[in-house]
Design a protein around this nucleic acid. Structure first.
Lengths: 203, 203
DNA sequence: ATGAAATAGTGGTCAGACCACAATTTTTCT
DNA sequence: AGAAAAATTGTGGTCTGACCACTATTTCAT
């Protein structure tokens, strides 16, 4: 039944194991030899599964210590994928477009769910911190949007984006403040307009 | 220099090889034993690299035949990550929300790029075909939006959506026609409103 | 107690051996 | 000669056993 691809079966088993045992990022998973014995498969098959997950950034291996769950963000994965995928200009345009649109989507969501406390916190952060990064700002926004899928998609898009632009543009601090004001007023139209201004996009 | 992780070195080599030889999707890449010999590494290391690329959907292996490049434009990245992420119940709400929002995004994009010919074609299709499906309609819309990333993301969301709802709701045919009218007028506000009406969503 | 040395556990890699499968080539039969 | 059958070759899939390098733990001498 299992048919081909033992390593894919192992990936499945690992998922179940992680889920059942409630393993979290940073936790250690069983050793390769242990898994090999438990699942009754060769160690090489276990390694094929683990290397695949490692390339995805889902686990991290430390020689002499073991294998650990990662709080995965894009790592080398994106570099690899981007050189494979982002070849034509059309694909690049799609990355930019999609990133922008999803950022606006998350602004709309955040607008509904944000409260004054969040606004104040963000404002303080922007004004106080010497050099703050655009992606850090939108990371906070997307957390406020409270949609895990958008977060994951955005993290990937962000990495694609940075693999495409050599020098990320520097945006004006005041524009972030405009954006926050619009959010505070819960004015959707104004929020979108502020985003366009920030990004120097034409309507 | 090479430092650890032979399999990552092999991934790099493969990228260069593909690039230099101008390999395209469908083309065959050297056999595992061949690569092992050429790069002077063990076959198991080659396999670890290949399995990682396979899980990413970049290559395809056929027993008895060989390993081939895949059409990686439809990479499974999001899908793989999703299957790891979409485990809890909270994620369920996110699937619905994200699917709806992205459909609206694509309506907005389609609105800019659509022309009368497309409208007529869609209208004829809706009115003539006895039973047409909601996802078929939006598939057409998203094609018109002309954004490959959104298409990929939506296709995945659609599958998750249908795995979450037991009986897909049946929408009113007239509401699709309203939507098309709004698109034809290139009225964004009206289009979004028509979408809400179609989906029976409150504002 | 303290620090050094031995030990055990772990990932990293390789080599060799089968198996199952597909394509090709060779042989055999009509 | 032509077609069917059989052997051969090449490939991915898997397992086993063996080292190596590194880390953490334990043991032991001081």
């Amino acid at each position: 039944m299992s048919t081909s691809k033992i390593y894919l079966e192992i990936v499945k088993h690992l998922r179940v194991m992680i889920s059942n045992n409630g393993l979290k990022p940073g936790d250690k998973i069983p050793s390769e030899r242990d898994l090999s014995e438990r699942l009754d498969v060769g160690r090489s098959s276990v390694r094929e599964a683990l290397r695949a997950l490692e390339l995805l950034g889902l686990i991290e291996t430390k020689k002499g210590e073991g294998t650990f769950l990662r709080d995965f963000r894009g790592n080398q994965l994106v570099q690899i994928l981007s050189t494979f995928i982002l070849q034509d200009e059309k694909a690049k345009r799609d990355v930019f477009e999609t990133k922008y649109i999803i950022e606006i989507d998350c602004l709309r969501l955040a607008l509904k769910r944000i409260d004054r406390k969040n606004i104040v916190k963000l404002r303080n952060w922007i004004t106080k911190i010497e050099s703050f990064e655009d992606d850090e700002f939108f990371y906070q926004i997307i957390l406020l949007a409270d949609n895990h899928l958008f977060l994951r998609i955005w993290l990937i898009l962000k990495d694609y984006y940075y693999s495409l632009v050599q020098t990320p543009p520097k945006y004006k601090r005041e524009d972030y403040l405009f954006l926050l004001e619009a959010l505070e007023e819960k004015n959707e139209e104004l929020t979108v307009a502020a985003y366009w201004k920030l990004r120097n996009l034409s309507v």
